[in-house]
Amino acid sequence: MKQIARSGLRFVTLLLICGLALQLYFLVRVALMLVIDPQSTSFQRSEAWRLLSEKHQIVWAQDWVSDAQISDHLKRAVIASEDAGFADHHGVEWEAIEKAWSRNQKAEARAEQTNEQLAKRQAARKADAAAPARATPKLVGGSTISQQLAKNLFLSGERTIARKAQEFVITFMLEALLSKRRILTIYLNNVEWGEGVFGAQAAARTYFRSDAARLSAPAAARLAVMLPAPKRFEKQPGSAYVSGRAATIVARMGAVELP
């Protein structure tokens, strides 16, 4: 029994050492961002691999620009749309996470109820009838810009407790070591704005044939609307929803405090 206990203790100690080493790795990577612009993220590398695997080519648009080369309109639009409290919070908005969790629970319950009803209808039909498509819940997120950056830089998109916990740790590292302005600059240079379109400069050129520095308030608001689902909105960037949502964001932009 003592031998088993010693082996177990050694195993736990090794896990703790590995965990601490991983956190130190992330800490060093974040610290380097004080002076080095990250040229790619974990999400971008996974997207490049997906494009290569599925389409056998990588069509890519990304061009890093400095904070001064990004329109204040775009900064205000993204903050108004994605994270209104960005300048004031310390990385995590717990109330927003709680609200998102509650909404997602209700959405999953509704989807499950719908699927049960579909299954009953299917059972009442002929056995060879085509099975109806299952309902999937529309999930929302309560992540701040800092959390989104932490996930995109280093982590996968899987929804697990371990991944979320690591996201929190990296978020607090970002907030502790980098200024809000630096966090926003890195985010705007790496966030996805369409398939193979990353960063404010590439987005401005792709959708408005302009530089990021010259984006107007309406154009910036349209780009901000696309962020939650860029691959969907890039197909219809001028849709009624995008236009209506953009108008709402423009109305909010005047109250946004830039870091």
Results as ranks from 00 to 15, higher is better:
residue 78 V to M: 02
residue 78 V to K: 07
residue 79 I to Q: 03
residue 79 I to L: 07
residue 80 A to Y: 05
residue 80 A to G: 02
residue 81 S to N: 08
residue 81 S to I: 09
residue 81 S to M: 15
residue 82 E to R: 13
residue 83 D to Q: 11
residue 83 D to S: 00
residue 83 D to R: 04
residue 84 A to L: 14
residue 85 G to H: 11
residue 86 F to I: 07
residue 86 F to H: 02
residue 86 F to E: 03
residue 86 F to M: 03
residue 87 A to G: 00
residue 87 A to R: 05
residue 87 A to W: 05
residue 87 A to K: 01
residue 88 D to F: 10
residue 89 H to M: 01
residue 89 H to W: 00
residue 90 H to R: 10
residue 90 H to V: 08
residue 90 H to S: 05
residue 91 G to W: 07
residue 92 V to K: 02
residue 93 E to W: 14
residue 94 W to A: 10
residue 94 W to G: 04
residue 95 E to F: 14
residue 95 E to V: 10
residue 95 E to Y: 08
residue 96 A to Y: 04
residue 96 A to R: 09
residue 97 I to N: 01
residue 98 E to M: 07
residue 98 E to S: 12
residue 99 K to F: 01
residue 99 K to V: 11
residue 99 K to P: 00
residue 99 K to G: 00
residue 100 A to M: 01
residue 100 A to C: 02
residue 100 A to K: 06
residue 101 W to Q: 09
residue 101 W to F: 14
residue 101 W to L: 12
residue 102 S to F: 15
residue 102 S to T: 06
residue 103 R to M: 08
residue 104 N to Q: 04
residue 105 Q to G: 14
residue 105 Q to C: 08
residue 105 Q to H: 06
residue 105 Q to D: 08
residue 106 K to Y: 03
residue 106 K to S: 13
residue 106 K to V: 07
residue 106 K to L: 14
residue 107 A to C: 09
residue 107 A to G: 01
residue 108 E to C: 01
residue 108 E to N: 03
residue 108 E to I: 15
residue 109 A to S: 06
residue 109 A to E: 07
residue 110 R to Y: 02
residue 111 A to D: 11
residue 111 A to L: 12
residue 111 A to W: 12
residue 112 E to H: 09
residue 112 E to A: 14
residue 113 Q to S: 14
